[in-house]
Design a protein around this nucleic acid. Structure first.
Lengths: 220, 220
DNA sequence: CGCCCTGTTCACCATTTAGTGAACAAAACA
DNA sequence: TGTTTTGTTCACTAAATGGTGAACAGGGCG
């Protein structure tokens, strides 16, 4: 609509070109995370950007293209962060605790990512499936876990039948749900799990529960 | 739009009045679960209903009113189901296993409920907060768990520091995430947790993990 | 110098979408 | 039986929304 931007100083200085894309992507990420795919408004994104609506279409083609770019960027960022972690020198149980805590913390630090994934699942993951990014190594976090599980089994600290993907599932479901469902959970139980006063307790609970499960324990 | 319904037999027989509301609610539940609040289309709902768009507005006022009615109905239904469960005669650990399995199964059996809650959380739970239904006893499932935890602590089977809400959180996050995030999880790890071949394993994992955590264990 | 490629602006459009006005039908009620 | 209340039809609308056409600016390059 009327894009009456006040100080429309049309500077063409260096760094404007690629930065325009980034500017759009950052704003679009917030918008899509906040309202979901259908709820997001291109006009609103354009308004909060230094560029215009036409530029969004120029760079990303259509709403779907923009949305896919947002998803890909968000996932790339989590991968980059995961890649930094190294736990090879820790004993399996300590390493596992480490990974659990990192996963827990990551979800807390990136609510946009959580909301984006929640929204994409409502859409049955169709856009992600159309995207090609997948191949760039599934998830460093899983590789990490696989290595830990292998070591744990080898040294006899872990019990038989532990699967890395299942472990990752257990850890992620807890960490993700804590952020994604905080509102309905609070409404139901008058306690918001994503809140600071519940943070440490839940973090420890998850860590204890998973490490306890994994630990070799012949009886029972 | 043009509601050219083929056999528009305008029967006014008994049972048409209240059933119209139910018909609308059932279709609307699917629509909102499938597309989220903003993605849902009143016209589409009307088309798949025996009534017309105007009737939807007649009964529910506006889109928000319809959505809220859908949420309330969905939650009322889960409550009704939970109320049926009785585990007072089982020992705490068996009772806990029972509740875990019931929660796990409920989420599997009601994907619409899961998707609806996921969508409502993207909206930050605003509609649920506007709704007044909450008072009708928070959650029977929680009452059940509280009673089990109390017995478990009393008989010394459970260890100290177990909280019923936290337990419920752990159980629900696992069960919910399995359904809600199946698509992105499958995309990432080439394994869909909601699928029959993963069902039993995950169900057992959750049950073992939680009961293991809860069980008294002085060492470590 | 003239051409072309990448950005960029502004006005504009077709469709979709939530929501309505008014008249009418059929019970319920008096 | 007349009147009021509840339910129902159909045509209609204002606004929002994703998306476009065309013209143009400016730097790189033959």
């Amino acid at each position: 609509m009327s894009n009456a931007k006040a100080g429309n100083t049309r500077r063409k200085g260096p760094g404007t070109r690629q930065d325009a894309r980034d500017d759009i992507l950052k704003v679009a990420t917030e918008e899509f995370a906040d309202k979901g795919y259908t709820g997001a408004r291109i006009d609103d994104i354009a308004l909060r950007t230094q560029t215009t609506k036409k530029m969004i279409y120029y760079y990303f083609g259509d709403k779907e293209g923009l949305y896919r770019a947002v998803l890909e960027r968000s996932i790339a960022s989590i991968r980059a962060e995961e890649q930094q972690v190294h736990v090879g020198d820790l004993d399996p149980l300590t390493a596992l605790r480490r990974v659990i805590e990192l996963t827990f913390d990551y979800h807390e630090r990136h609510p946009d990512f959580v909301r984006l994934m929640a929204g994409e699942n409502i859409l049955r993951g169709e856009q992600l499936r159309k995207s090609g990014v997948r191949d760039e190594l599934a998830s460093p976090a899983l590789a990490l876990l696989s290595e830990i599980v292998e070591r744990g089994l080898r040294t006899g600290v872990f019990r038989q039948g532990i699967d890395a993907v299942d472990l990752h599932f257990a850890i992620t479901s807890f960490s993700f749900f804590r952020m994604s469902n905080q509102f309905t959970f609070e409404w139901l139980f008058e306690s918001n799990p994503a809140t600071p006063e519940n943070r440490e307790r839940l973090r420890k609970l998850l860590s204890d529960m998973v490490t306890g499960y994994v630990t070799a324990n012949p009886d029972s």
